[in-house]
Structures are given as structure tokens and as C-alpha cells.
């Protein structure tokens, strides 16, 4: 198999009712990357997901997944999907174990009888997301973060090399969010492609390497630093973004350095002076800190 990649070239998707959800969209993702799919509701994020999974067929353009067509990729079970919490019927009478086992169905014979190997993989997947102790729980009895982890475990059990996550951090507390991010990073380091659909801008710089900005087409795609600029975001979101400009605010500049930012559930996205991205912590970004210091010294 050629090395893992997603190539979307000039894809246009139109629904039977005549609505064109996506026009002439192109982007490329290579293996070992966490990419954010960012855009407002109705911008075509879910249409893009559906095209990658083969649920809708583009009327123009091509999608290639590791050199395969979408249909072939589906047969190879390359693409795993972690649904949005709202899409799941949490009252359904299945246990955590049952759900993760569903990841193996595509690998089983017609009667879907689990082999010892299937069970081993399910156990391993559960252990990896730290949900082994909850294996016999009915899925509705879990917290928001636990629910997410179960479906991530299912994607792992499926052995999906490309994992699509839809709004993974809604209804998840900050600690769990960080645990999930750590897990996504380790999956990336194994060479998988993680594509996360989100409108939570603030969390994007914290865990994504790549960004695909969509608004009825792909506006920009590439490394985070290049794509996640104020200009691009304004193009993607238009007037929807709430902005707070410190230089225009009533905050008094007492000591020349005071910046305070408090938000509710979603992380704030912070651009420093000069429009560069600001991160939550310095750890792992020493070179960036150095660069900024140099800029300040000049």
C-alpha cells in the first residue's frame, strides 16, 4: 500500500434537491498529521466527511485515499468515523464492549462471530483509551468524555488509519479533553491521519498541525501557522466571529503587559501583536519563545 494520504481534488458535491454544498474543493493531507476541519455550520464540513466516507458522491472532482478510491478505501476499512454525541442513541441497549466490538464487524465473517483475535484487539483498544473498567456498562451510563473514548476505541478496533472525529470536545471537561488530545497525538505518531471537524477555534492551535478552512469550498489548507491567520478566519467565518481587540478595549495598560482573558466553555483563540498565534503553554515551544524574545529585543 502506498503511504497514507488524503487527496481531494476539485471536488464539487451537490445534493439531489439541487443544493451545492461544496464547490471545487481541494486539499492534501499526508500521514502522521492531526488536521482540523474548521468552518461554520453549513459550510460543508459534514459534506466533506460524508464524501470521504463515500456516503455522497461528488458530481465533479476526485478523492483519493492512500491511492485508493473512496469505495476501495471503504472495503479496506481505512476510514473510521467517531460520531458527534448528538447522533448516537445513548439509550440503545448495548454495552461499551458491544460498541467497541462493532469496530471488528468489518473484519469478521458473514455471521459476525468474534474470534479470540477480535476479542484481544477489543481489549487492547479499551485499555488504550482507559475504558477497560467500564466494559460492561450500558453506553448511556457514561460521562461525556467516556462516551467519546468508547467511540475512539471502536475506531482503533476497526484499525482505521484515517480517523474522522466530529466535534470531539463538546460536552467534555477540560481534563478529559487533554487526555483525548494526548491519545490523538499518539495515534498521529503512529502515522495515522486524524481529521477533526470543529468550530471550537481556540482548541485548534493546541493540538492540530494542519488546518483545512471551509466555507462552501476549501478556502485554505496547510500547516497551522500558515493557514490559521486572522485574515483567513475572517474569510471563513465572515461576521460570525466574536472578537475582542485589546488595543481598542477599555482595559487600561497599567504596567504595559496586563492581558486578561476569561471565557466560558470554549477555548479562546489568541493572536498576539503582529497577528501571530499565541499558545496556552511554553512547553514544547521553546524555539517559538526564543523567536518572540528576539523580535522583542530588536
Amino acid at each position: 500500500m502506498p503511504s497514507l494520504s488524503i487527496d481531494v481534488a476539485n471536488v464539487t458535491v451537490a445534493y439531489p434537491n439541487g443544493h451545492t454544498a461544496l464547490r471545487d474543493a481541494s486539499f492534501h493531507l499526508h500521514q502522521g498529521v492531526i488536521a482540523a476541519l474548521v468552518g461554520i455550520n453549513g459550510s460543508g464540513k459534514s459534506t466533506l466527511f460524508k464524501s470521504l466516507m463515500g456516503f455522497v458522491k461528488p458530481v465533479a472532482g476526485t478523492i483519493s485515499i492512500a491511492g485508493n478510491t473512496v469505495e476501495q478505501a471503504r472495503k479496506l476499512k481505512l476510514v473510521a468515523y467517531v460520531p458527534q454525541s448528538e447522533e448516537v442513541d445513548w439509550t440503545f441497549p448495548v454495552s461499551v464492549w458491544d460498541v467497541v466490538m462493532m469496530g471488528r464487524y468489518g473484519h469478521m465473517n458473514f455471521l459476525r462471530i468474534a474470534s479470540a483475535e477480535d476479542k484481544r484487539i477489543v481489549n487492547e483498544s479499551l485499555a488504550r483509551v482507559g475504558m477497560t473498567d467500564f466494559r460492561d456498562r450500558q453506553i448511556g451510563e457514561l460521562s461525556g468524555g467516556q462516551k467519546k473514548r468508547v467511540f475512539l476505541a471502536r475506531a482503533l478496533a476497526q484499525n482505521g488509519q484515517i480517523i474522522l472525529l466530529d466535534e470531539p470536545f463538546t460536552g467534555v471537561d477540560v481534563t478529559t479533553e487533554e487526555a483525548i488530545i494526548a491519545l490523538l497525538r499518539s495515534l498521529r505518531d503512529e502515522g495515522r491521519i486524524i481529521l477533526v471537524s470543529t468550530h471550537n477555534l481556540g482548541s485548534v492551535p493546541e493540538f492540530c498541525d494542519h488546518v483545512v478552512l471551509v466555507n462552501r469550498t476549501v478556502l485554505a489548507a496547510g500547516p497551522l501557522e500558515e493557514v490559521f491567520t486572522e485574515d483567513n478566519l475572517n474569510r471563513a467565518f465572515g461576521g460570525v466571529l466574536r472578537q475582542f481587540h485589546f488595543e481598542q478595549s477599555t482595559i487600561q495598560d497599567h504596567d504595559g503587559k496586563t492581558v486578561k482573558l476569561v471565557t466560558d466553555d470554549e477555548r479562546p483563540l489568541v493572536f498576539g501583536k503582529g497577528g501571530h498565534l499565541e499558545y496556552k503553554d511554553r512547553q514544547g515551544r521553546e524555539d517559538l519563545v526564543e523567536k518572540r524574545q528576539k523580535e522583542a529585543g530588536e
Binding site: 466516507m53 468515523y81 462493532m102 464487524y105 455471521l111
Partner: peptide, 21 residues
Amino acid sequence: AMRKDLMLFCFDTAHARAIGL
């Protein structure tokens, strides 16, 4: 004979499609 496929279909159609059903 098809009880597991049908159960998955009722529970999560998107996943069923994603794994090639």
C-alpha cells in the same frame, strides 16, 4: 443469521457504511 448486522444498522448506520456494509 443477520442479527448483528441488523443491530448495527439500527444503532449506527454511518459506522455500518464506513466498515463496508
